[in-house]
Design a binder for these strands. Structure first.
Length: 579
RNA sequence: CGGGGAGUAGCUCAGCUUGGCUAGAGCGCUGCGUUCGGGACGCAGAGGUCGCAGGUUCAAAUCCUGUCUCCCCGACCA
C-alpha cells in the first residue's frame, strides 16, 4: 500500500474523552474512531491488525481440532428463558421486539444457540467429542462502557464450545484449549499470566483466565511470589486470620446512640474507631430466602464466594422492607446479634470470627453496640450459621501461608468447564456405548479479539506511539521516502517497496510529499516494527537506513542489500514470537 | 443507578462569573511563496443554527426551565 492513497487519519492532539494509553493511541494513530459510547469504527490500520489477530486465532484453533462455524447475532429470547439466563444476564443483554412482536436478543455469547444445535444434531457418543467455534460480534449493553475498546458494548469475540461424553474427555480438550490459548497470546506478542478464575454466570466447575498485566487493566490478579498460586480477585481464596487476643477483659456490650449515623465511615468518625474494628452485616435475598452476610468493616463481600457458600444460588442485596423486617431497624443499623432465627442462614467471614472485639449495628434504629465479642455476643456455631471465606482478598492476606501479591491486568481470554448446566436445560443428550441417555459434558472458551490489540498497545508503546509486535502490526515494514521530490530517492524507495511486495512482505510505502519530520512522527505513532528510511544523503552514498521501531539506533546498508536485510529482520522478529 | 465534570470551527480549547459591537485562539484544511532528516515559516482564505427545545429580556454562547449526548469516580458486570 501507498501511504499517499491510504486512509490513515493520524492526529496530534489527544482526544479529550480518551483516558488510557491504548485508547489514546488507537485514536491518534488512526486505528479507529468512536461512533457512540462503547462503539467504534475500525479504520484501515485498526482493521488490518484485527484481521491479523483473527487469522492467528483461526490458525491455532483449527490446528487444535476445532471447527469454525457462524451463529446468528440475533437470537430468540425463548432460548435464553430456557436456561434462565434471560434473567441472569439482565439489562446487559440487549433486546428488541420485531414487527411480529417477537422478542429477540443481541447475542452477548452463544451457549444457548450452540447447545440447541448440539441437542438437535448429536445423538451418539460416536459423534463426540466435538469442538466448534466462531469469531463474531457480541453485544453487551454495559452499565458503563469505558477504557476505549477494553469495555465496549460491541466487540469481536472468538467463542468456542466443546461437547463430550464424560469429564475425562472434557479435561483433555480443556487442556488442549489452554495450551492453544498460550500459543495464541504468545504469537500475538503478549506477556500474559494465567490465573484460576471463578466461572460466575457461566456456571460450571473450573476456569482459568488469561490476563495481560498492566496498570490500566480492570481486573485484579492475585498471586504468591513463588508462583504456586495465582487467581483473580473473584476467586482468590485467603487463609483464615489468626484469632486476635484481647488486651484485657472485655466489658459487656454497650449500646450507643448514633442518631442518623448508619454508614461505616460515619460511625467510625462518630465513635472514633476504624473500619477494621467494625462488623458489617449485609442482608441478602436468595430467591425467597433471606440470608445475612457478616464481614469486617474494611472488607468487601465477594459475591462469587458468597454464592458458592449458598450452594450456587445467586443472592442480591435485600430491599429496605426486607432488611427492616429482619433487623427491626432502619437500614444502616444491622448487626449479627439475635437475628439467627430471623434469617435462613448467617454466613460469617473468617476474619470476623477472628476478631477479639468489634463495633456493630444494634438492630435498633439510631443505635450501635460496642464491646461486641464474636462467639460471646453472637454465635459462631449453629444449625444455620456458617463461618467461611466470603470476602475479597486484601493486601496482607496469605494463601497456604504465603503472602498474596496484587496486580492489575486486562483479561484477554478465559476457559471454562461448563459441565452439564446447558446440556441438561436444553436437552443436548446422546446415547453412550451401553445405550443409555446422557447429557453432553461441555466446555467453553473465549477470547476478546479487540482486547488483544488494546493490551498489546498498553504494554508496548513509548512517548511517540505504538510499538507493534510484528505478528499483529498493520504492516510489517514501512518504507519512508524522506525526499519524495528527489527523483532518485523516490525511485530507490519505490524499488525496495516492490521488491519487498514480491517477497510477500506486508509493506507500506510512505510516498507522501511531506517534510521528513512529519513522516517520522507518523511512522513512530503508527508503530510499524521495521522502518526502511530512504533519504537523499544516504542514497548519494549508495545506502539506506534500516531501523526497528523498538530500538533507537538504525543501521546503514547498501541499497542492493536493503531488501534482503529487511526480510532477515522481519523473519527474526517473527521467530521471536514463535511459541 | 448514585456522585462529579463537559457539550462553542474537523481537533484541543478560551469567552459565560458581571447579558451588549461582526463569537475568538492554536492545530488541521485550501491557495501562493520560501523551506525540506524529527510534527517549518510568511501571506491570503474556507469553515460556527455556541448540543437541542422552550422561557426571561430592547438584547442570550452568557441568565432560567426542560431535554439529549459524552467523559470520570463508584455500584454492577466476561
Amino acid at each position: 500500500m501507498r501511504y499517499s492513497r491510504m486512509f490513515i487519519p493520524t492526529v496530534k492532539e489527544v482526544p479529550a474523552d480518551a483516558e488510557i494509553i491504548s485508547h489514546r493511541l488507537m485514536i491518534r494513530a488512526g486505528l479507529m474512531r468512536k461512533l457512540a459510547s462503547g462503539t467504534y469504527t475500525y479504520l484501515p490500520l485498526g482493521w488490518r491488525s484485527l484481521l491479523k489477530v483473527i487469522s492467528i486465532v483461526r490458525e491455532e484453533m483449527n490446528k487444535a481440532g476445532a471447527q469454525e462455524i457462524l451463529m446468528p447475532a440475533v437470537q430468540p429470547i425463548e432460548l435464553w428463558q430456557k436456561t434462565g439466563r434471560s434473567v441472569d444476564y439482565g439489562e446487559t443483554m440487549a433486546r428488541f421486539t420485531d414487527r411480529h412482536n417477537r422478542v429477540n436478543v443481541l447475542a452477548p455469547t452463544a451457549e444457548e444457540v450452540v447447545t440447541s444445535i448440539a441437542a438437535n444434531e448429536i445423538n451418539s457418543y460416536k459423534q463426540l467429542p466435538l469442538n466448534i467455534y466462531q469469531i463474531s460480534f457480541k453485544f453487551r449493553d454495559e452499565f458503563r462502557p469505558r477504557f476505549g475498546v477494553l469495555r465496549s458494548r460491541e466487540f469481536i469475540m472468538k467463542d468456542s464450545y466443546s461437547f463430550h461424553p464424560d469429564n475425562e474427555s472434557l479435561d483433555e480438550t480443556y487442556r488442549i484449549m489452554y495450551d492453544t490459548y498460550c500459543r495464541i497470546f504468545t504469537r500475538c506478542g503478549l506477556e500474559y499470566v494465567t490465573v484460576e478464575a471463578e466461572s460466575g454466570e457461566m456456571g460450571g466447575s473450573g476456569s482459568h483466565q488469561f490476563t495481560v498485566p498492566c496498570e490500566s487493566g480492570e481486573d485484579t490478579i492475585i498471586y504468591t511470589e513463588d508462583g504456586s498460586y495465582a487467581a483473580n480477585l473473584e476467586k482468590a481464596a485467603v487463609d483464615p486470620l489468626p484469632k486476635e487476643k484481647a488486651d484485657a477483659k472485655i466489658p459487656p456490650i454497650q449500646e450507643v446512640h448514633t442518631p442518623n449515623i448508619g454508614s461505616i465511615e460515619a460511625v467510625c468518625a462518630f465513635l472514633k474507631t476504624k473500619p477494621r474494628d467494625m462488623i458489617k452485616t449485609l442482608i441478602y435475598a436468595a430467591g425467597d430466602d433471606i440470608v445475612a452476610a457478616v464481614v469486617r468493616g474494611d472488607h468487601d463481600l465477594n459475591p462469587e464466594k458468597f454464592t458458592q457458600v449458598l450452594g450456587g444460588r445467586a443472592a442480591e442485596l435485600a430491599d429496605e422492607p426486607a432488611i427492616e423486617k429482619v433487623t427491626g431497624a432502619k437500614v444502616g443499623f444491622a448487626g449479627p446479634m439475635g437475628i439467627a432465627d430471623k434469617v435462613s442462614k448467617i454466613i460469617i467471614d473468617h476474619a470476623v470470627a477472628a476478631m477479639a472485639v468489634g463495633v456493630t449495628g444494634a438492630n435498633k434504629t439510631d443505635y450501635h453496640v460496642r464491646n461486641v465479642v464474636p462467639g460471646r455476643d453472637f454465635p459462631l456455631k449453629g444449625e444455620n450459621i456458617i463461618v467461611a471465606d466470603i470476602r475479597n482478598a486484601v493486601e496482607g492476606d496469605t494463601h497456604n501461608g504465603k503472602k498474596l501479591l496484587f496486580r492489575r491486568g486486562i483479561e484477554v481470554g478465559q476457559v471454562f468447564k461448563l459441565g452439564t448446566k446447558y446440556s441438561k436445560k436444553l436437552a443436548a443428550k446422546f446415547l453412550d456405548e451401553n445405550g443409555s441417555e446422557k447429557p453432553c459434558v461441555m466446555g467453553c472458551y473465549g477470547i476478546g479479539i479487540n482486547r488483544i490489540i488494546a493490551s498489546a498497545i498498553e504494554i508496548s508503546h513509548d512517548k511517540d506511539g505504538i510499538i507493534w509486535p510484528i505478528t499483529i502490526a498493520p504492516f510489517e515494514v514501512l518504507v519512508t521516502s524522506v525526499n519524495q521530490d528527489d527523483k532518485q530517492v523516490a525511485q530507490v524507495a519505490e524499488n525496495i517497496y516492490t521488491q519487498l511486495l514480491d517477497k510477500g512482505i506486508d509493506v507500506l510505502l510512505d510516498d507522501r510529499a511531506l517534510r521528513g519530520g512529519v513522516k517520522f512522527k507518523d511512522a513512530d505513532l503508527i508503530g510499524i516494527p521495521v522502518r526502511v528510511t530512504v533519504g537523499k544523503k544516504a542514497v548519494a552514498e549508495g545506502k539506506v537506513e534500516i531501523k526497528l521501531r523498538r530500538e533507537s539506533q538504525s543501521q546503514k546498508v547498501p541499497i542492493e542489500q536493503a531488501t534482503s536485510k529487511t526480510i532477515d529482520l522481519v523473519n527474526s522478529l517473527k521467530e521471536q514470537l514463535i511459541p
